[in-house]
Every structure is written in structure tokens, then in C-alpha cells.
Amino acid sequence: MNTLIRRLAAFPLVLLGVSSLVFVAIRLVPGDAITAMLGTQAGLLTPAQKAALAAYFGLDRPWIAQYWHWLRALLHGDLGISVTYGKPVLEVILQRFPLTLELALLSMAIALVIGVPAGVYAATHAERRSDLVLRIGAMIGQSTPSFVFGLVIIYVLSAGFGVLPAMGTFTPLLKDPLANLGQLILPALTLGAAFAAAVTRIARSAMLDVLSEDYVRTARSRGVPARGVIWRHALPNALIPVVTVSGIEFGYLLGGAVIVEQLFALPGLGRMVLDAILQRDYALVQGTVLFIAFNFMVVNLLVDLTYVWLDPRIRARG
């Protein structure tokens, strides 16, 4: 239990580090914040007006004071106001997040459903032709960037079948589940392919390691049939690295799949950050990055919890 408690204790610390890193990074952006915020319209302001604005946003105060102010607001759930949207940052984020979450979950489901059985199959047929085919497939899958895979899907669909993936207005899940799924299935496949390749590779090598363990030999010596050895004795041990890899990938996906959202014109978190960076909406960048890092850390914590559930040694060692 101790590891978990330590992790929990470190949680606010790392979050504080993340927030200050984001804060400092934003202040390091060249040019003054008002110009950055208003873009071309800044030229229309007189220096006095600029100063007034700076005072209004608290930008004339020293960094430490600004940081303190920002942190205090943060504790109250106030991430500031987005200039481009004219809405509170948190509201904008929460509007975009369901899509990102759904996409991430869908991709992970695809990855695990394909990856774990494929990895186990490859490991139990190691060095045979089926293993070779799976390994080559996984290797190519892992070497294909999501934007290449996405483009290929779009190209094949449009050139081969004359269909274009449903882009345009996004339908929320609860409004029309079928239409929603229709919009998300291709991006989820795009993301899930590389993810599945990673899961296959790690599941295969973990399974191979576990199959050479002494306790697997013991199980065989007791007359446990091959299938029982694989699924009941080996797999629970081999899942531990699979959980690690899946957790990391899932955490990254929760940060928004910038490129795939861009490619399929999906209004998710990732594209929002990209737009915010390009449009210099710094309150939004700051808030979203913090939100994403927070999610990532929560996922890591869940991964740790899964370890404890999977491995009694961790439970005891703490």
C-alpha cells in the first residue's frame, strides 16, 4: 500500500511542478501578453490602453504574484477566460473532453481486443510462421505514424469506394449513438492500429518471459493442460507489462490525439490545444495543458492500482 500512498502524496507536488512549468513556459513566449492576446488588433491600442489592460489582467505584477493569483484561482476551479471563445476555460475544456475520452476508450478497446490475443497467440506459437506474420504485422503497425495510416484510410475510402468519412458537425454520443460511432470508428481504428501493435509486441514478449518461469513448469508438472497453463497461470503474470504500456498510451490519448483529430476534423481537446497555440490563446493553452497532465497522472494512478490488484507482491511490499 505504501507505493500508492507515496504516489498520492507526490501527486499534488508533481501537479504543482506541472503548473509552474506551464506557467513559466507561457511567460517565456516572446512579445508582451496583451499583444499576444489581441493579435493584430493590438496595434489599434494606445500605450495607455495597453497598460490599463495589463493592470486589469494583473499582468503588471511580478511573476510570483501572478503565479500565486493563478494558483489560488486554480484551487477554486477557475482556469481563467479564453479570449478566442469568450468563455471560461474550464467550460470550453469540458465541452471538448467527452469526445476525446470516447475516442481514447474506443481506441484502447480495439487495441486490447486485438493485441492481447494476438500477443498470446504469437508467444505460444513462437518461431512458427503464424508468429512471424504477427510480428511483422505488429512491427509495421508500430512503425506507421497515425497520420500516415489515417491518410491511407481516407485515400482508400475516397479513391476506392468514393465515400468520404463523415466530417463536419460532430454528433454527441447521447444524441445519436449510431451517427456518433460512425464518425468515431475510423479515427479510433487509426489510433487503435499502432496501439494494438504495441500491445501485441509487449504481450508477446511478456508471455514468452513468463512461459519460461519455474512456476509455469510447476503447473505443467501438476498436469495442468496447455490452455490452463496459458490463460490461468501465465496470462495474469504477463498482463502486468501490458497494463503499463496500455496505461501510458491511454493517458497520452486522453491528452487529445492532436494529429488524428486534425486529420478527421474532430472537435477534441488536442485540436483545441493546437488552435489555442496557433491563435495564442494562452489562458486556454495553460488550462488545457494542466487539465491534460492531470488526466495523465490520474491514469498513472489507476495503473498503479491495477498493479496492486494483479500482483499480491506489490500489495505486501508497499
Binding site: 513556459a25 497520452y252 490545444v273
Partner: peptide, 15 residues
């Protein structure tokens, strides 16, 4: 490591 890789890279580019 708490930042997704591409996001951290984007942040550096933004700065």
C-alpha cells in the same frame, strides 16, 4: 513525463 509527448513538443515550439 506527465505531458503527452507531442503536447510537450508543441509547447516548446510555442515558446
Amino acid at each position: 513525463l506527465a505531458f503527452p509527448a507531442i503536447l510537450l513538443a508543441m509547447l516548446v515550439v510555442a515558446v
